[in-house]
Design a protein around this nucleic acid. Structure first.
Lengths: 146, 146
DNA sequence: CTCAGTGCAAAGGATTTGCATGCCG
DNA sequence: CGGCATGCAAATCCTTTGCACTGAG
């Protein structure tokens, strides 16, 4: 569908900007991330596509991250998690299960987001810290683990 | 001073509850964390106390974490960071430098905290997710790296 | 005397890197 | 053709674990 076309078109152009190719493996990884719709670990990502070597997957995700297509997040020890860059999916936050580690996305009202931004801007004001973005995670126990 | 006495008294009793002793090494670690006043990595923690073996430090911090005296946080790959449990230092958030990795504490108004809690409670309502606590991080570049 | 705490060395686990090969452009 | 992507294996890095020893109660 159109959304996916846009996604791949964007990925292509961002990779090209970095003089990188949008290979089948990379496209498959982006597809898998889009389908997942939440940050996934490397084992989860390769569960289906077990043909791609682990090292290649890591290398491809690193390339995609440098190009701004993929974002890597670290929520705990164990495995890092990968998701599509926020400007492709929209600003969101993470619901983290402390038991199984599962991570899901959620969004808050733009009103609360604005309050947050204002409050955070005020906090760093005059400290020399240059704020880039904020992260708001909700940690608890998911339905399956509860 | 009194605050430190309280801290060590609390640590002692929490360890005792777990049938663990408050050894000199453990006390030194708690002191170092209190002095740091922000989440520190293992290398930072042992910079001064280089007499304690790395494995012992990890073991002691694990004991202190189980007892609820210390909290371990993971902000990136590389090193985990350790800080005193939040009920000893008060609820706070983290200012993270994406360049050098340094982490500092900050607090927001209790009014904003309340708005956050309300909004987050509404989000998980009826999802089966049982919320434990939230995390709000501000990511950017610190004064030294800017 | 006993057992928990310690140090040292080795193991573990996720991720990265070196190198030879194959394929796309 | 030339260079980049890939696979495999080895290396890295933080952290954990095994084991023998020692010191506190």
């Amino acid at each position: 569908m159109a959304g996916d076309d846009d996604l791949h078109a964007t990925a292509t152009s961002r990779l090209r900007r970095d003089q990188q190719r949008y290979t089948a493996s990379r496209r498959a990884l982006v597809d898998a991330l889009a389908v997942a719709g939440r940050p996934v670990t490397m084992p989860e990502l390769l569960r289906d596509r077990s043909d791609l070597a682990l090292s290649s997957a890591y290398r491809n995700l690193a390339v995609l991250e440098r190009a701004g297509v993929v974002q890597r997040i670290v929520t705990s020890d164990e495995h890092a998690r990968f998701e599509l860059a926020e400007d492709l999916t929209g600003h969101h936050h993470h619901l983290i299960c402390g038991s199984c580690g599962r991570v899901d996305d959620f969004r808050v009202s733009s009103q609360l987001e604005r309050s947050l931004e204002v409050a955070l801007a005020r906090i760093v004001e005059g400290t020399g810290f240059r704020a880039d973005h904020h992260r708001l995670d909700l940690v608890g126990t998911c339905a399956d683990c509860g």
